[in-house]
Design a binder for these strands. Structure first.
Lengths: 143, 143
DNA sequence: ATGTTGAAATTCCCCCAAAAACATCTGTCT
DNA sequence: AGACAGATGTTTTTGGGGGAATTTCAACAT
């Protein structure tokens, strides 16, 4: 279970330091993928394989499914944090999320997310103001 | 399981260097064939034979099925990477996929794909929008 | 409030492995 | 026999991964 918001830097080699609170859960591996709203999703191996199973069911013969599958798998990277809690992010993922130096790592329950700091600031400002409105619309989802 | 996106060059003899992360899985052989959307599909021997079985089940009476089967099998080539992790691609396959010098090798779960760099750039840009659409739907399914 | 201790974060440096260019060998065809 | 095309091997360079050291921060106790 990932909670909280943490500021970090990316080093010259494209590595992020994981928040200390996330280390234990991710110690034996993690998977990073292209997420929604231009951020990266970070899953534990268990969560990932659930996802993977769903995707594998998609038919090879459907063109949209192919496009999605390609994006999904090619935009994914397995990794293990080193002894200092760092994970290296492949170039294509950094490009996708527009990560430069300042990043924000947030906990979102089952997964963590990595954002470019600026993008996150903007996004959270926008959604915070409409927080209760959004909540209203979610009422139908049974929360 | 193949994941990620990797840039490589084809040498003068028509050989591609396989990404280091794919080597182990392909060490004891691989099958390359004409893929969909002008790229090449690369399978492990195991995955290939699974596919072969599926294709055999297709009705011989369907004209499209016949055409597909012909392309798929006639364009296939078995190979083994050398000690440095290189695979040589037959001329006809290189022509098919329009491979010059810069290629992109991507992991797509059960298979890998080899793309001409330019084509891949274009394709992934075009399909990115459908990615987030589908991802959103999947996210709605509680993933 | 201040000093002390420990852990986390940032920077630096080294080494190994992977890429890319370069070179050699073999066989076949003319 | 020579030349060419194909495949296989070798060398050098570059980039990335990993470790270590220094600094910063935070928590705690005096």
């Amino acid at each position: 279970m990932f909670l909280g918001e943490f500021q970090h830097l990316i080093d010259g080699k494209g590595r992020v330091i994981l928040p200390a609170k996330f280390r234990e859960e991710l110690a034996d591996g993690l998977v990073v993928t292209k997420g929604l709203e231009d951020c990266l999703f970070v899953y534990t191996p268990v969560e990932w394989s659930k996802l993977e199973d769903k995707i594998r069911e998609m038919p090879l013969t459907n063109q949209n499914a192919r496009a999605f599958t390609r994006n999904f798998f090619s935009g994914a990277a397995k990794g293990t944090p080193d002894k200092q809690g760092r994970v290296s992010l492949p170039q294509n993922l950094r490009d996708y999320a527009g990560l430069n130096k300042d990043v924000v790592v947030i906990g979102v329950g089952a997964r963590a997310e990595i954002w470019d700091k600026e993008k996150w600031t903007k996004y959270s400002a926008e959604t915070e103001s409409s927080y209760s409105e959004i909540a209203e619309q979610l009422a139908g989802l049974g929360i």
